[in-house]
Design a protein around this nucleic acid. Structure first.
Lengths: 149, 149
DNA sequence: TGAATATCAATTGTGCACAATTTAATTGCT
DNA sequence: AGCAATTAAATTGTGCACAATTGATATTCA
């Protein structure tokens, strides 16, 4: 029962790290880490040329808190990919706005999903099914009562 | 194409962290972190009362290198759950042997897989299918040629 | 109005992951 | 035997995750 290969947790853990490892050389070409890439995906998706989402909006989407996001976003700001500005009418809130350089990076990232699959022996249909199951698991975990201690 | 919800990678990333988060309070009762728990699973599985596996054996099983394992195992040694000893006939090799306290912890961990699922609205059959697909993905990633840069 | 409360981001501290390098020991090859 | 090449673990440095706390601002309500 406690055997490693019986654990769904280990299969998830190992597969997640293997996927990340496969992204790494591709993202290195953009100068991004994997979590930075995920943050940029959200920023590209939400970008309307306006003031941009709040740190907590990114956090909600990515399931990350400010302890992770604040330093990550500061690094992206140093690379001039985005700007962090306190909102005037509520100084508690920080807005994350893409710079032009941040928007331009999107074009260079466009090929990454395809490159990732290239040379990988898995059916696209399998991946769609897997994604669906992972979403189901995530939803179940997020609405579950806290596990009994 | 670049939308966050289209990415298999994000589904994996988020689900993995959600599972880890659900383990955390259970493992806190044993004084273990999640990676420490995975290492203990391997040690319990391989334990034959002998000198124990090498650091690199654990690394191969868990897909972790010495940079991760060395400090992790030192923490478990400080807790008296295991012993790290250089092998006499080859001083390069470190053997990881469970202590009695390390073996006793297995009994306390026995209920964890079940507790994890308790209160979680997913079919066991779904989990088995998911694990199978994750294994397939991992196998494909591990035998794939390095992705084109 | 003014004090408690709530909210948001930042900070602090611990523990992974992982690349790159280092140290030490062993093996292989003349 | 002696020296290069190899192997195993440890070390160093960067960047997440996440719990807990802090600091600053806003809101609520007696």
């Amino acid at each position: 029962m406690l055997a490693l290969d019986n654990q769904i947790c280990f299969a998830l853990y190992a597969a997640n790290r293997a996927v990340t490892a496969r992204y790494r050389p591709l993202l290195a070409g953009l100068g991004l880490t994997y979590p930075q890439y995920l943050a940029m995906l959200v920023l590209w998706e939400l970008d309307d040329g306006g003031a941009g989402p709040r740190v907590s909006d990114l956090g909600q989407r990515l399931r990350l808190d400010s302890g992770t996001l604040t330093p990550l976003l500061k690094r992206l700001e140093e690379r001039k990919l985005l700007l962090r500005t306190r909102r005037g009418d509520d100084e508690r809130v920080v807005r994350i706005a893409l710079t032009d350089a941040g928007r331009e990076l999107k074009a260079r990232a466009a090929g990454i999903p395809e490159q990732l699959l290239c040379g990988l022996d898995v059916e696209p249909a399998q991946l769609v099914a897997l994604r669906q199951q992972l979403r189901g698991l995530l939803a179940a975990l997020e609405q579950a009562e806290p596990s009994a201690q």
